[in-house]
């Protein structure tokens, strides 16, 4: 046995060393999650308006068009339960927070990050936000979350060319969706609507409504206004949505907002202020649309009576 262990250890040392070095190098590449986590660590106390949510907010809200001190803490595919986790993580720091703005989209109540194709993103919250998702060790390592060839490409870009994984500006807005390289709105509408259709039906519904309730309670306790909204989308996306899932989503949100006066709900899904020029693809805004949506929220916030 001793011989076996000795040989195994001797054989494994270079493998372990390479793995650890690879992991460390990957973690040192700046990315959206590490940036947002660091930003909140330092500035949570100053923030007045916090935007949470998925890619619709990530690309759709540019905080520089909001007069109050605001930050976009959304991330691609970030579900409601992770929005709540971010709120709770800085619970003692929200000294000036007055508004929390969260999108509750067509798919938000019916999906969970851990169970979809975006499950690999869970590690970002564990590694960079210091959260605990579950006991799967794969969620605590960069090297196993993505294909190694993709990770090698990240290393090459950062360490040889200085290109990090950061795709946001200083206030957390995702800058990649530019109007100059907009996607086909018809094709993307069909594809996204199909992708967002829930296959798990009501499996996650109860849990996500519970999360919404916890978020509302959290805000109420701290005298923070919770603003929920359905993100604007182009008609090619809306037309391809499952009507039952869409109605169920709206009905839940209307009931939720009606039962709690501290919660506001805005349905912007088919808002006529948005046109094809505002969209990068059928369900994501470009910089023109982001300016518009940010302006809408700025107006909403300004119109609120001051405490």
């Amino acid at each position: 046995m001793k011989k076996f262990l000795r040989t195994l250890l001797f054989f494994a040392i270079p493998v372990i060393f390479a793995g650890v070095a690879f992991e460390i190098l990957l973690r040192r590449i700046p990315n959206d999650y590490s940036y947002k986590s660091n930003f909140l660590d330092k500035n949570a106390k100053k923030i007045e308006v916090l935007f949470l949510g998925n890619s619709h907010v990530y690309y759709g809200i540019d905080p520089k068009f909001i007069e109050s001190k605001s930050f976009n803490a959304s991330n691609i595919s970030q579900p409601l339960d992770y929005d709540l986790k971010i709120l709770e993580k800085y619970q003692n720091d929200w000294k000036h927070l007055k508004y929390v703005v969260v999108p509750v989209d067509y798919f938000s109540l019916f999906t969970r990050l851990e169970s979809g194709i975006e499950a690999w993103r869970v590690k970002n919250y564990d590694l960079y936000f210091g959260m605990y998702s579950n006991c799967d060790p794969a969620n605590y390592f960069e090297i196993v979350a993505n294909q190694t060839k993709y990770n090698l490409e990240r290393l090459r870009k950062y360490y040889l060319h200085g290109e990090s994984d950061l795709r946001i500006d200083s206030l957390g807005w995702g800058t990649a969706n530019h109007s100059q390289n907009s996607q086909d709105l018809i094709e993307s509408g069909m594809v996204s609507a199909k992708r967002h259709r829930s296959s798990s039906e009501k499996r996650f519904l109860k849990g996500q409504i519970n999360v919404l309730q916890k978020m509302a309670d959290f805000c109420k306790e701290r005298n923070i206004k919770l603003i929920l909204f359905s993100s604007p989308a182009y008609k090619t996306y809306v037309e391809n949505l499952d009507i039952n899932q869409m109605n169920k989503n709206k009905q839940i949100l209307n009931t939720f907002a009606a039962s709690d006066k501290t919660v506001q709900y805005y349905d912007l899904l088919t808002d006529c202020r948005f046109d094809s020029v505002d969209f990068y693809d059928a369900d994501h805004l470009n910089e023109i649309g982001a300016k518009k949506l940010s302006g809408i929220f700025d107006s909403i916030i300004k119109s609120e009576p001051k405490n």
């Binding site: 270079p14 196993v144 294909q147 190694t148 060839k149």
Partner: peptide
Amino acid sequence: RWTFYYCLIAAIFYFTGPE
């Protein structure tokens, strides 16, 4: 022989991804 095994491990590692 070990170099060959390391090459196999490197190939596994290179192609590995989400389970």
